[in-house]
Computed example of a mutant assay.
Amino acid sequence: MGLSSCEKDDFCTQNPVTPSLILRFHDKDDVTKKKSVERFSIIAVGKTDSLFVDRNTDSIAIPLNGLDTKTVYTLKMNDVDNIKTNNKIATLTINYTTEEEYISRSCGYRFIFKDITLTSSTPSWINSLSTKDVSIINNQIKAHVQVFH
């Protein structure tokens, strides 16, 4: 007679993703209307790889650095053509505090971002932001900030 016992595998099934900041782009003249950004690229300051290159999109999810209290992105768009001299540049600076949230032994930790403040460079192609302050980013269910251009 033999005994066997099973132990539950320790897999992370909760998907404890550290949330990204979700930006949704809107028409500055009709704030209820989404407006795609044409030939859009975004790169974190100090990095060499772009998150998006030459995309047409009306929303993006951008990661924040959980090991720092600030993330800076350069956002580039070109609504005319693919000629570099026609690129429009904006710098988006995101300041925040972080909190680590323990999920489980197999999942580990994730970051939650609190007391977020956003500023964009002027002049830029970004006309305004729906808010400059976000109290918490702990999910990716909906847009956190609307960008009007």
Rank of each mutant, 00 (worst) to 15 (best):
G108F: 00
L64H: 00
T71M: 01
D9F: 13
E38C: 10
G108I: 03
A44D: 07
V45S: 12
K88M: 05
N56R: 10
N15E: 05
D29F: 12
L67V: 09
P16M: 00
T98Q: 04
I42N: 12
E99S: 13
V31S: 07
A44M: 13
I60W: 14
L51K: 09
T93P: 02
C107I: 03
N87L: 12
V37I: 10
F40S: 02
S59Q: 08
I43T: 03
G66Y: 01
I89F: 07
T93N: 02
T69V: 09
F11M: 12
T74C: 05
N56D: 05
N15Y: 03
V37C: 13
K34F: 13
K47R: 12
I22M: 08
P19D: 05
T74K: 04
A44G: 08
D68H: 09
V45H: 14
R24I: 13
N86C: 09
I103A: 04
M77H: 15
G46R: 01
K34N: 15
T97G: 08
R39L: 08
I60N: 05
V17R: 15
T85S: 15
T97H: 07
R55L: 07
N65M: 05
I42H: 07
S104R: 01
G46F: 06
T32E: 02
K28C: 02
P19T: 07
P63N: 03
T91W: 14
A90Y: 05
A44K: 11
F111W: 06
L67E: 14
T18P: 00
K84C: 08
Y73G: 01
T93D: 04
A90M: 04
I112D: 06
E100C: 10
F25D: 02
R105W: 02
K28Q: 08
T98K: 04
N95W: 12
T74V: 15
S50M: 03
F111Q: 06
S20R: 15
D54P: 00
T98S: 09
I42G: 07
F40H: 04
R24G: 11
T13R: 00
P63G: 01
T32P: 04
G66L: 06
T85Y: 09
E7Y: 07
I103H: 04
I22R: 12
N78A: 01
R39P: 07
Y73R: 02
V53A: 08
C6Y: 15
N78G: 03
N15A: 10
N78V: 05
T98C: 08
T93S: 11
S20C: 14
R105Q: 15
C6P: 11
K33Q: 14
T48M: 06
I89R: 04
I83K: 13
T71I: 00
Q14F: 05
D58R: 09
K47N: 12
K76C: 08
G108T: 03
T74L: 05
Y109S: 11
